[in-house]
Every structure is written in structure tokens, then in C-alpha cells.
């Protein structure tokens, strides 16, 4: 039951988050906050031209938000700004609509279980909301509210 939500990949990324460090030479960064559960996240992006060269994060959060940040930073590398924003939209649809799961989302499909846990959607989208702020270059803290 609850295993639909906490799939193995998610648990792996929760226990061993990837790209979980500060980045001294980041060209963009933004902070995200989910007032409901107190989750905080700082995202670092290094752009080269229009391409995301590197991405990392720091923060404390629940299993879903940590795994989401970890998997997001992995999937961003090498994407153009537009591709990244498109992926964000698809990710949002994956969590909030019944749209069929498409193949091009890679590992991110592990979050499809979140659909059945409406109270947890904000946990999964915190990193992505923060990404949007970082890419749009408005530097203040975003919240999921």
C-alpha cells in the first residue's frame, strides 16, 4: 500500500541524497520553504550559456521532498533552460492529474504514487518550485503556499 509512495528509488535517494552540497561557483540559487511541514531547501544552479551545467541542493525535509530534490538535480544536468521548465510542467502533471505516465520522464516516474497522497504533493514539488524561481532569477524565498 504505502509502498506505492515510498518506492525503492525514493527511499534510496532519501537515505543517500545525490548532489547534496553547497556550490561555490553557482550562477543562480534560490530558497524554498514549505510552511506546512517546515521543510527548507536551498538550490544551486550553474548555467553555462543556456545549459544547466551543474545543480545541487542543501536542506532538511521529509523523505519525499529530499528524494525529489535529489532526483531533480540529477535530471537537470545538460538540459537547456526551456527543457528544464518543460520537465517541471510534466512533473507537475504527473503528480496532480490522471494523465498517462510518459516514458521521457526517466527516473522521475517513481513519484507517480504521490497522486494518491494529495497531502504530499507539496513535498514533491518544493524543489521544482524553487527551481522555477532560480531559473527566472527572482531571488527571494519561494513557498509552496
Amino acid at each position: 500500500m504505502v509502498d506505492d509512495l515510498y518506492q525503492e528509488t525514493i527511499l534510496d535517494h532519501t537515505k543517500h541524497p545525490r548532489n547534496c552540497h553547497a556550490m561555490a561557483d553557482a550562477t543562480r540559487s534560490a530558497e524554498g520553504y514549505n510552511p506546512l511541514c517546515g521543510d527548507k531547501l536551498k538550490l544551486f544552479i550553474k548555467m553555462e550559456g543556456d545549459v544547466v551545467k551543474d545543480a545541487s541542493f542543501l536542506g532538511s525535509g521529509c523523505a519525499i521532498s529530499t528524494a525529489s530534490a535529489s532526483l531533480m538535480t540529477e535530471s537537470l544536468k545538460g538540459k537547456t533552460r526551456d527543457e528544464a521548465l518543460k520537465l517541471l510542467e510534466k512533473f507537475h502533471d504527473l503528480l496532480t492529474t490522471d494523465s498517462p505516465v510518459t516514458k521521457d520522464m526517466g527516473k522521475l516516474v517513481v513519484f507517480c504514487g504521490v497522486r494518491d497522497y494529495p497531502a504530499r504533493v507539496k513535498c514533491a514539488t518544493l524543489a521544482w518550485h524553487t527551481l522555477k524561481t532560480a531559473l527566472n532569477g527572482t531571488p527571494e524565498t519561494v513557498t509552496t503556499e
Binding site: 500500500m1 504505502v2 509512495l5 515510498y6 506546512l36 511541514c37 517546515g38 521543510d39 525535509g61 521529509c62 523523505a63 519525499i64 497522497y117 497531502a119 504530499r120 513535498c123
Partner: peptide, 22 residues
């Protein structure tokens, strides 16, 4: 090592209602 939000979700699936948060 376990966030209250995750505790709350797993308990809920076992019929147990607790509050998590601040």
C-alpha cells in the same frame, strides 16, 4: 532520521490519525 510528515503518512495508511507539523 525520520521526518514527521513521513511518519504521519505511514501511520495514516494503518488507520492511525496523528498530527504532524509545528
Amino acid at each position: 532520521g525520520i521526518h514527521p510528515h513521513d511518519i504521519g503518512t505511514v501511520l495514516d495508511r494503518q488507520g492511525i490519525a496523528v498530527r504532524t507539523g509545528h
